[in-house]
């Protein structure tokens, strides 16, 4: 009797709690997404409408304009930006991101594999050295990097960004790939005990196909970091090799009619990685914890 009553009360409590939790979760999610949802919305407004308060959220056809919180969406800003010079920046970003990611994979995969093999010595030192380079502030070495880039004739050249993004992403990629290799059955790794060409063959033919997800997850993370990188791009590129963040800094200060265009440009610039992230959520855990959490 008592037992039965307790159960119902508990069940009812859980139901109520889960209702509250659902509402709360949605409220928090909308609150957190306000800055970017509003930015995306403003990109579809006219320059006159965009900075107006109260914030207009509801897209309506022109005949209904004037209602509170409603605006008439327009593609004008996007047309302006795409017809303007946004695309070259976008293409540079894409090249720097994709090529560096490809090189990262080519270099990190064998390294991570070897760092999994039991006979490799000094693994701890190598792994810790790699990860410690991520602690160093890039701005601390920016002048030598600038001067070296100049010496090599690579200023305003996407190749400079490719090299730097490769070095920037390698440590995380090695850590991450290694965590996937470690999950492989022991006999696969045992086969790798053979030296030399045997190891490489083993890696390509047997181990690699088994960690397809790991390769994708690593690529995914390298793309996020390279696409969003700002300081190196700002310092080393000018026009020919300038990437999306350079396009964005012209919107840093308020001027004239700029709010809607800034919003549209920001949305376009953030979109590729955001979309990738939405689809690649499950890989994020592994990636961001650099393989520490499985």
């Amino acid at each position: 009797m008592v037992f039965w009553q307790r159960r119902t009360a508990a069940t009812r409590g859980i139901e109520r709690a889960s209702m509250i939790r659902t509402v709360l979760a949605w409220a928090v999610a909308l609150f957190v997404s306000f800055p970017f949802l509003y930015l995306a919305t403003s990109g579809f407004k006219t320059e006159v409408e965009a900075p107006k308060m109260p914030p207009a959220f509801v897209p309506v056809p022109e005949s209904l304009s004037g209602f509170p919180l409603a605006y008439t969406p327009t593609l004008e800003n996007y047309k302006l930006i795409l017809a303007g010079d946004f695309m070259p920046y976008f293409i540079n970003s894409a090249i720097a991101t994709l090529v560096s990611t490809l090189i990262v994979l080519l270099l990190a995969t064998p390294a991570a594999y070897a760092l999994t093999l039991p006979q490799t010595t000094g693994k701890r030192n190598v792994l810790f050295f790699l990860i410690s380079t991520r602690f160093l502030p890039a701005v601390g070495v920016i002048i030598p990097i600038f001067l070296a880039t100049r010496f090599l004739g690579l200023l305003d050249n996407v190749l400079a960004l490719i090299i730097l993004y490769t070095a920037m992403n390698l440590p995380i990629a090695v850590w991450m790939m290694r965590s996937f290799f470690q999950d492989l059955p022991a006999d696969v790794l045992d086969a790798g005990r053979m030296d030399g060409a045997g190891t490489i063959q083993e890696l390509i033919l047997i181990a690699l196909p088994m960690i397809k997800n790991g390769v994708l997850a690593t690529a995914f993370l390298a793309i996020i970091f390279a696409w969003n990188e700002f300081l190196l791009a700002l310092t080393l590129t000018t026009t020919k090799a300038a990437t999306v963040p350079l396009y964005m800094i012209s919107f840093m200060s308020a001027q004239g009619l700029w709010y809607a265009k800034m919003s549209a440009a920001g949305t376009l610039a953030a979109l590729p990685v955001v979309i990738l992230g939405w689809f690649g959520q499950k890989w994020l855990v592994r990636g961001l914890s650099m393989g520490a959490v499985k």
């Binding site: 800055p35 964005m248 920001g266 610039a269 990738l276």
Partner: peptide, 28 residues
């Protein structure tokens, strides 16, 4: 709607940091 909520919560991390900051500076 758990999938949507989780996606919305993750997004601030994916957005280019300078754009996230820009959005905060002006829209918020």
């Amino acid at each position: 709607g758990r999938g949507i909520v989780r996606t919305l919560l993750i997004t601030p991390f994916l957005i280019m940091p300078i754009i996230g900051a820009l959005a905060w500076k002006y829209t918020v």
